[in-house]
């Protein structure tokens, strides 16, 4: 028996699903088809070329960019998990009055275009360049800011779903030190939110071009643009792979969210 009339009919749902699905899938399939083109026929020649030693020099920027982006992912996740999350826990437990201002600050970057952000960041990166060097990993500080709104929302949603203060006080009364409270009691209960924040950080870092390009750092996206000028096929292959990787991450986020919801329903 169907429950409520405002649930769309299965056929309507199917049509919407196919329409939206094809909107997303068609460009991807076209991209895939492009990478398989070999004159008038189709083959895996461009995919195989990635591993061709003769072209190694051409593709080198991609490998450099990819490894830089992987390092950036890790440092950005560290910023989210080791700086943002503990700060949010502290604000929620000890300084709840600061919550509104923190939320405002955390959501601000979403309204600032990356190019404007760079204008502000340039003088700061001059200082960073002099003190910490010009390594690509230093971009993670800027990425920490661009990731902030998304990471903040997902962590705050997890915090709102549990009674943070009582859990912390219960653990304290049982003899736990503050680091133990955070590590053994709060983190496991905020796991869904922390995981989502980390995966979103990964997705943002993998897709970021403007800041890296304007600050003269090399990451996956700047490398793709560079290589595109010499070999459009390989840059498209890597774009496709990066996109699929992000889809996969979003799927994982969705699944962990569902798991959390299912556990909540048992209550």
């Amino acid at each position: 028996m169907r429950r409520a009339s405002f649930h769309p009919h299965p056929v309507t749902r199917g049509v919407i699903g196919v329409l939206v699905g094809s909107f997303v899938l068609l460009p991807l399939l076209a991209t895939l088809e492009f990478t398989l083109r070999d004159g008038d026929a189709h083959s895996l020649v461009h995919w195989a070329a990635i591993f061709d030693p003769a072209k190694a020099a051409t593709y080198k920027p991609i490998w450099v960019g990819l490894s830089n982006s992987l390092v950036l992912m890790l440092v950005t996740i560290a910023v989210v998990l080791l700086l943002l999350a503990p700060t949010m826990i502290l604000v929620n437990l000890r300084f709840p009055r600061l919550r509104r201002s923190m939320e405002f600050v955390a959501l601000l970057p979403i309204s600032i275009p990356a190019i404007v952000l760079v204008v502000g960041l340039t003088p700061i990166y001059l200082v960073i360049g002099r003190t910490l060097g010009t390594g690509a990993w230093t971009l993670a500080f800027a990425y920490g800011i661009t990731v902030l709104p998304f990471a903040y929302r997902s962590i705050q949603a997890a915090i709102d779903a549990v009674n943070l203060a009582t859990l912390a006080e219960a653990a304290r009364s049982l003899g736990a030190s503050w680091p133990t409270v955070v590590w053994r009691v709060l983190a496991p209960n905020l796991r869904g939110g922390l995981l989502a924040a980390s995966l979103i950080a990964v997705a943002v870092v993998l897709g970021e071009y403007t800041i890296a390009s304007l600050l003269n750092r090399q990451n996956l996206q700047t490398a793709l643009v560079l290589v595109n000028k010499q070999d459009a096929y390989v840059s498209v292959i890597f774009s496709l792979l990066a996109l699929l990787f992000c889809f996969l991450l979003l799927l994982i986020i969705g699944r962990t969210g569902n798991l959390g919801a299912a556990r909540g329903k048992d209550r």
Binding site: V162, N163, T166, L167, E169, A170, A171, R172, S173, L174, G175, A176, S177, V185, P188, N189, R191
Partner: peptide, 29 residues
């Protein structure tokens, strides 16, 4: 500080750690 006072406390709101079973909650202290 609380964690060195050697107290046992039961709260008004449910305060069990949701990610631990009853026995693991009990042995936490």
């Amino acid at each position: 500080p609380t964690n060195r006072r050697d107290i046992g406390m039961v709260f008004q709101s449910y305060s069990l750690f949701p990610h631990l079973t009853a026995i693991d909650n009990t042995r936490f202290g």
